[in-house]
Design a protein around this nucleic acid. Structure first.
Lengths: 131, 131, 131, 131
DNA sequence: GTGGTCTAGACCACC
DNA sequence: GTGGTCTAGACCACG
């Protein structure tokens, strides 16, 4: 089973979550360049969604050049997908941090306060302290 | 003019952005407990939006007890609104940081990497270095 | 009636032809930045296609930043769409010519021969001679 | 090895590209009337494609009377194939030019503009100037 | 078997 | 009213 179940934050559409999971699988090496991704029909059965929804996710991945079609065979992970997906993930982290910082600025929190919150949340998911 | 124009990230609905701006005005002291907020009609003219949209924003604010109706007068900022709005803003920062950290964990970024990104983004909006 | 009927070269999918027609309307000034494009439902009736098909065309146009959504109102032609659509059309001509030239090269046609064909075809659609 | 690898524009089906390559080989004299074309099995091995695909390409070639079956022998290039393939290639060039010109007309480009683009693209593939 | 396109009809949030 | 998402099921070309 390549991809996890589709749960969690329901604010994002299903097709986007599917696309993200595939990109995640690429970034983490589970799917490698040249690999065939599960067929639309197969994945739609696994995830219990309509094939069209999977197809739409795959279309997005094609637009982003993460996968490319091989006629009559299926979709394969493209060569540059690994580098791109890794970079994408780092960008997501950066974007989220930027949003957090923007909010902090607006709220007139100073460096100490936000740092304190950051440490709290960091250790909340990991016993280790941030030096 | 109490509230700024409605621009920026268009991903959030207008009524939410209006509600946020009101809460922000309370948090920052521009609106104080007991103050009358602008009428639906007036605000809808100022912001050039449909009155329904302002009405919905105010409905949300009532649900969160930020404002309360006073018969024959209008909506006034409630007593406990200041404390709550301040707390809310801090919570938003915390939430954003939590999301960023969750992403970082998934992406196998370690403390050093995420801290580096954090410092970068922090100083990007402010010459001051984070100790 | 903004857009023509959907006929002619049947090799391209309907949704692409719709998107192209909109881009053409922008390039030729029929639709101008800020204009509202026909609603999905309305256009689908005009063209006698399924609303989903129109929606897909519009989604493509959003990806290319030709139109952008205005919440609860519809899709409007974006500011930079005019310049971009014009440039696009010129690029299409260039691409077609490049293909023709590549074919000519492969077929060992020399400059004179291809120029002759070019003149023929040009005057076939316009009495005027190419100097 | 008679035919080149199957690469380049992936928008055309494989069987069509095979058929084109055969026709090109005929037009350029590599294959001459009376010559035996490679067997389906052999060619499918060479090109690493499904034998069905080669078979389909050959079927198309038979429909166009480029090759014809000889009992117990295989497919041979037919007598009139050379003339026809040469003519075909010229027609392709003409068709591409016609498309380019049609696009140019729609885009309101005048003779000078399209000629300029033509010259540009022509010299891009060959230092020689078009008189 | 594969993906791609299209239709039909439903439901949602937003304005 | 608007677009966006999703489901269901059909047909096609390709290999």
């Amino acid at each position: 089973m390549l991809l996890k179940d589709l749960q969690g934050s329901d604010d994002k559409p299903i097709y986007e979550r599917i696309a993200e999971q595939v990109k995640f699988a690429v970034a983490s090496g589970v799917l490698r360049p040249g690999d065939l991704v599960p067929s639309v029909r197969e994945l739609s059965k696994q995830l219990v969604v309509n094939p069209n929804t999977v197809a739409r996710a795959y279309r997005e991945l094609q637009n982003e050049s993460v996968v490319e079609p091989v006629r009559g065979t299926g979709l394969v992970v493209s060569e540059n997908a690994l580098a791109q997906c890794k970079k994408d993930r780092k960008e997501i982290v950066r974007k989220r941090l930027r949003e957090a910082i923007a909010e902090a600025r607006l709220s007139r929190l100073d460096a100490h306060e936000i740092e304190a919150i950051f440490r709290e949340e960091w250790s909340r998911t990991n016993g280790v302290k941030l030096v």
